[in-house]
Amino acid sequence: MKTYAGGLKKGDFIIHQGSINQVIKTEFYSPGKGSALMHTKLKNVQTGKTVDYAFKSNEDVETVEVNSIEMQYMYKDAESLYFMNAQTYDQVAVPVGMAEGFVQYLKEGDKLYVFMQEDKALSVRAPLTVRLKITHTEDAVKGDTVSNARKPATTETGATVMVPLFVKAGEVVTINPETGEYVGRSAE
């Protein structure tokens, strides 16, 4: 399938210089000389490497059709993250590089959408939020009254996040895995 570069969106899969790439970022740019451009950040699904590339905004781009299927996260090793399709029990591997930035917030059993090209897993979508138990954080220093003060806390997955001073070890917090930001305290 073909589209024009100006219509590319974050998350799209395209063929770029012979390989499948996922669009990580797009930014329209009109330099005031020549036609408008679409600045993109592309991640090669084989290597996990990212490149910056500016397309002419009306340039043809070949897109790759993918299905997103909800799967359960199982575990990871040095190269891949492993997911299981709960309907078929099929297991697939996604290169670690495709989950860069949010892999540290994932725990076994989390449900995520895996992008499949036929039966090959290309990438995985970061969940909107994750709920993680805080395993360690220092108690707040008394007298520190800055309203939006934050302190570091360690989650059950080993990630470090910045949380408000009132959060205590043992509590469950909600995190935005794409930014690593604390969203709120969880009822559980």
Binding site: Y29, P31, K33, G34, S35, L37, H39, A54, F55, K56, N58, E59, D60
Partner: peptide
Amino acid sequence: RTDSSGEHTYSYEDLWSQIYA
């Protein structure tokens, strides 16, 4: 670029801007 009306070569200005970017 190819569309329903045939092949169009990008202008010098368009390609220059892309290399520049």
